[in-house]
Design a protein around this nucleic acid. Structure first.
Lengths: 195, 195
DNA sequence: AAATGCACTTGATATAGGTCAATTCACGAT
DNA sequence: ATCGTGAATTGACCTATATCAAGTGCATTT
């Protein structure tokens, strides 16, 4: 299946609507395929996030670096997820985040101005945007609650049940950072839960 | 200014579009005013969040209670904010949250089905929804980053600069809980930063 | 096969922030 | 004015998690 077929299926499935041939032509004309090798950056801190990318293949992490040089992973992303720093993308502000490919990465990317066009012209695209926005809001609410009310161990168990794929796809130190833990602490948590 | 005038101004300002007289009639027909006294609940854990409320006056907190009986405040809300547990509201699932009035509260409320209608029929309403969704996404991203990378003191300073009104409107123990801190810790942080 | 480099583990120690208990403060109700 | 209640402060102590340092196991490169 080609990259665009994957993408079209995704839109139709999430939105519950069909794309016309015209819709598909429009999307193909303005979403550009882009490939990144592992370790390459989709976005660097300080740059404006001009593109939003739909991940067709591979994985990425969104992270900040604090004054002490410590990295904090905010988001881990896999196939069929969208990749962007939304604050920078919507407001055209320089980003405080880095987005780096953790595996070889293939995305379909487009600009904010184009997305506005798709929203106006393609009903399935706009329906998809609404569903995604709902899902994001819900996921954020959950994650925030987990961060505030759960212990390290509970957050790890939560991750296992909500995103079991993460354990296969991401190294443990990345998962630790995503959970807001040091790699040592995650290692000890795993040791204890196996006994 | 009446409740609805406040509401209409808000929609027009956020969306950048004007409401027609028909639009206004439609909104007035399906947003119901509701008043809650301080301490009353807008939503109780276990119930489905049937209504979304627009706060015209007053304030509220959204919180969970963990197994140890500790409360965790996820959201503090003031005038011109929306009040709902979106997970429960969108998915019609029983809520894990409580929403309680912290001051006497006046909201305009409506149901999910009605909101869908407004989105279809009122361009300004739908434009507003898009802007709000962007703002939420950005605010969530920021708050998550703060929770993961900042110390307690930095989070408090962040709050002071982003939401100075909170200090006037909410008691310190609520703010502590919102920041994920014990009241004692927040008290000590304030003491230190005054020296 | 040796060498290099990472991810992961393990142990010892440090620290931010939590918990518990006592005290003071503010204010609404009588 | 006084009482009562809940908020805020303060001190002593505790705990979860971070930090630092050393060691182990595996791939990848040479």
């Amino acid at each position: 299946m080609s990259n665009f077929e994957v993408f079209f299926d995704y839109i139709q499935e999430i939105s519950g609507k069909l794309l016309s041939e015209d819709d598909k032509r429009l999307l193909m004309a303005h979403f550009k395929p882009r490939k990144l090798r592992k370790r390459q950056y989709f976005l660097q801190e300080g740059d404006v996030c001009k593109y939003i990318g739909f991940i067709v293949k591979g994985s990425a992490r969104t992270f900040t670096v604090d004054e002490k040089g410590h990295e904090h992973i905010l988001k881990l992303s896999l196939e069929n997820w969208w990749l962007a720093d939304f604050e920078s993308f919507y407001l055209l502000k320089p980003s405080r985040f880095n987005i780096e490919a953790l595996e070889d990465l293939e995305v379909l990317q487009s600009t904010n101005a184009q997305i506005e066009e798709f929203l106006k012209q393609i009903p399935a695209f706009s329906a998809m945007a609404n569903v995604i926005s709902q899902n994001y809001t819900i996921a954020n609410q959950k994650r925030m609650q987990a961060a505030m009310s759960y212990t390290a161990e509970e957050r790890y168990e939560d991750l296992i049940s909500n995103y079991p794929q993460f354990l296969q796809r991401f190294p443990q130190n990345m998962i630790a950072s995503y959970l807001g833990l040091s790699p040592e602490t995650l290692s000890r948590i795993r040791k204890n839960s196996f006994k």
